[in-house]
Nucleic acid binder design. Structure first.
Length: 313
DNA sequence: GTCCAGGGTGAAA
DNA sequence: TTTCACCCTGGA
């Protein structure tokens, strides 16, 4: 919290001097699904944190946050710092892995990538929804559920809080299917029931050990190891969480010589042991790098990222 | 128009 | 340990 003393508030924005933040990669790169480029097209992203509608944009030395719901600034600075993962040891991660063959170039190429600290329920809902889906569709699904069932806190249609689990239970699986969730609807309602009933105390899992919290999440129908690790990393204060999907598996093989066909479980165990408390951060930089290189090849290699000279063939 | 992959999971073989 | 169904949307 040493940075807050440098932050300033002007008539309509709050300046947070927290170092460079890559807003697009962090807010709209597959961690959260309810951030959209602002209508103003000034590079800012608009979304909801807690009950506040915020516009966030990059600024020298940090970010500028503008509440766009016409309400007072009370608590916005604190909640934004919290949401952007300000308590995480980014400096330790950087110095620890500056010479790493995969992460070193990534850190020099896009140093502003952060791991978010989201609301656990919205995060759990979002990643159950992510199963065999893609980011545009996840955004479509999560966004439409919020717009239909959430509580309006601003002038735009998307300015809504995420619906409480009780509301999801009340809406029911068929309603979610009608919104286009597909087979995931049958997982989401029982998960909502577990939270609404108090059977699953999501917020308590922030204090639990990684292993205990993970075991609780995996016991939910529709939550496997991958989804659990997403929720642990992005909302439950578990920086030792490492998320393995097929992209990450390829990266681990390419950069860290993991056997070609390691199981997902083995790869995740290996990575958690190797990256330790920096696993979630390492995971995000690796994921982002794989995504950029994949995108480059899809575009015929025309896009050359300076962090990826050997991938731009 | 068809085809296919997309930040998986659970159940059966 | 491997295979398969599950829903459906956008892009090729």
């Amino acid at each position: 919290m040493t940075t807050t003393e440098n932050n300033t508030t002007t008539a309509d924005t709050i300046s947070l001097q927290i170092g460079y933040v890559d807003i697009e990669a962090t807010l709209d790169g597959g961690q959260a699904f309810r951030w959209w480029p602002s209508d103003s097209q000034d590079g800012s992203y608009r979304g909801v944190v807690g009950r506040r509608v915020l516009s966030i944009r990059e600024a020298p030395g940090g970010v500028e946050v503008t509440p766009v719901d016409g309400k007072p600034y009370d608590g916005v600075e604190h909640s934004t710092l919290d949401y952007l993962g300000q308590d995480q040891d980014l400096e330790g991660f950087r110095s620890h892995f500056e010479d790493d063959p995969c992460l070193g170039p990534a850190l020099r190429g896009y140093s502003g990538l952060r791991v978010l600290r989201q609301d656990p329920w919205e995060c759990l809902f979002s990643f159950i929804t992510s199963s065999t889906s893609n980011i545009p569709r996840i955004k479509l699904n999560v966004g439409s559920a919020a717009e239909h069932l959430g509580y309006s806190v601003g002038p735009n249609a998307r300015d809504v809080t995420f619906p409480e689990p009780e509301i999801i239970v009340e809406a029911g699986a068929q309603f979610l299917r009608d919104l286009g969730f597909g087979f995931r609807a049958k997982y989401l309602v029982p998960a909502a029931e577990a939270v609404a009933s108090g059977n699953l105390r999501l917020n308590d899992l922030r204090e639990a050990t990684y292993e205990d919290a993970r075991a609780e999440l995996v016991s939910l129908h529709g939550v496997g190891e991958k989804v659990a690790d997403c929720v642990l990393a992005f909302s439950l204060d578990k920086p030792e969480s490492f998320i393995v999907d097929r992209h990450i598996l390829r990266a681990l093989h390419k950069w860290y010589k993991l056997p070609e066909k390691s199981t997902l479980t083995y790869a995740a165990d290996w990575a958690r042991d190797y990256f330790g408390e920096y696993s979630a951060l390492a995971n995000q930089y690796m994921f982002h790098r794989e995504r950029l290189s994949r995108r480059a090849s899809e575009w015929g290699g025309a896009h050359v990222d300076r962090a990826l000279p050997e991938d731009g063939s």
